[in-house]
Amino acid sequence: MPSLTETFSAHFGHAPDGVWSAPGRVNLIGEHTDYNGGLALPIALPQRTRCAASAREDDVLSIHSLQDDSSVEVRIDDVAPGHPAGWTAYVAGVLWALREAGYAVRGLEVVVDGQVPLGAGLSSSAALECSVAAAASDLFGLGLLESAEGRSTLASACQRAENDIAGAPTGGMDQAAAMHCTERHALRLDCRDGSTSQVPFDLSAHDVVLLVTDTRASHALADGQYGARRDSCERAADILGVEFLREIDPAALDEALAQLPDDVLRRRTRHVVTEIARVDEVVDALRRNDLEEVGRLFVASHESLRDDYEVSCTELDLVVDTAVDEGALGARMTGGGFGGSAIALVPVAEVDRVSAAIATAFADAKLTAPVSFSVTAGGPASKD
């Protein structure tokens, strides 16, 4: 298969101006908290989406994918909600959002190579957006990769692309992770004020790995279920008289729940408030190298997502239950849910056995074979 730069040269008739990349992410804990002004704790994956790109002098964005050999051309001024459709919305939306924010961007020639598994809850969309945003920043002299503030600006543009053009009502955690995560660290992200801090996350010193299992149960965040959860949270916050559910003190949670008119709102609110608290509990446990406590909190998070937020599924539950039964310190679904991936903290000596047990459990249940792989914490969007 031709390389990314070879494909670019063959498609456009000249070499690209450069290649940029951005990572997928795994969220260690803090699920469905970002749009509630809460906390999240992602790491960047080693798997990245790369884009070869050159600047154009006109308004035309010409996009080609190495994965499906498809091409799309669109003028930036013609980009609008739902246009272009499909995966190209994530690319075109970035340039549209940067222009909407007042940046002088023009068209691009782009070939993308996505190595983040699609539909796996590992944020392939944000990886795509952020690789293109990094390219645009460099090619148009915006200088936004050079500072934390500039990277936050790019992350915001990418989030707007996903929300307004692609139509997925996600929070900003995925894009912030792709722009701010660093190697061997998790990112404590405060989604209310955008502040970040780095938390050491190097499991190798403890003979433990983070095992990711892509259940192959594909999810789609634009299908209404994600939006319904977000709507419930906004309704609960309105009833409780707060801007975000983040503002509910965990110590006063029972009092807050008593004010809500139905069980669905109570369960959604309980998940968000307790999940936000669990993020800092995991941060504290990581700082004191208490991985058993991290594992316990992983399981508590999954149970909350399964029972109160109702975003798990048979495949995710099977991974978590099997991993814990086979010796994992803890496991949980990660990402938006309704499919996608689960993560487990597994002693190095048990990785092969846990992975095999998960595969066997899926086969016994006559489910599509999952894919399990170990990951380390990678770096942010950059020029290759």
Rank of each mutant, 00 (worst) to 15 (best):
V212R: 00
W87N: 04
L318A: 08
A89D: 04
G224I: 11
G327S: 02
L144P: 08
A10N: 12
H180R: 15
S147G: 10
L145P: 12
V346N: 00
T170I: 14
V283Q: 10
A359Y: 03
G13A: 03
V94K: 05
C158M: 03
R50W: 14
T5G: 02
A55W: 05
A177P: 12
F140Q: 11
D238L: 10
D190Q: 08
I43F: 05
E293Q: 14
M179Y: 09
H14S: 11
A228H: 14
T153K: 15
L260I: 03
N27L: 07
M179C: 11
A161P: 04
A344V: 04
S124W: 01
P42Y: 10
V279S: 07
E275M: 09
V311A: 06
S304Q: 00
V273Y: 09
I29V: 13
S124R: 02
A323Q: 06
E315G: 02
V105S: 04
L41M: 04
A217L: 07
T153V: 15
L210D: 06
I276Q: 10
L316A: 07
G340M: 04
L210V: 09
N163S: 01
G227V: 07
D17G: 13
A361M: 13
S218E: 15
G241P: 04
P81T: 08
D214V: 01
L260S: 07
L316G: 06
H302N: 10
L145E: 10
C191W: 01
E6V: 03
Q67E: 15
P200G: 13
H271G: 01
S304W: 00
E234H: 14
F373S: 06
T88E: 14
L4W: 08
S372W: 03
I248E: 10
E275W: 04
R25A: 09
F338T: 12
D325G: 06
N27F: 10
G379V: 08
V283T: 11
L61C: 12
F338I: 11
G121C: 12
V242M: 08
P23K: 08
G107V: 03
A85N: 09
V116T: 08
G114N: 15
G340W: 06
G378T: 05
V111S: 05
V79F: 01
V19K: 05
E292G: 11
A365F: 13
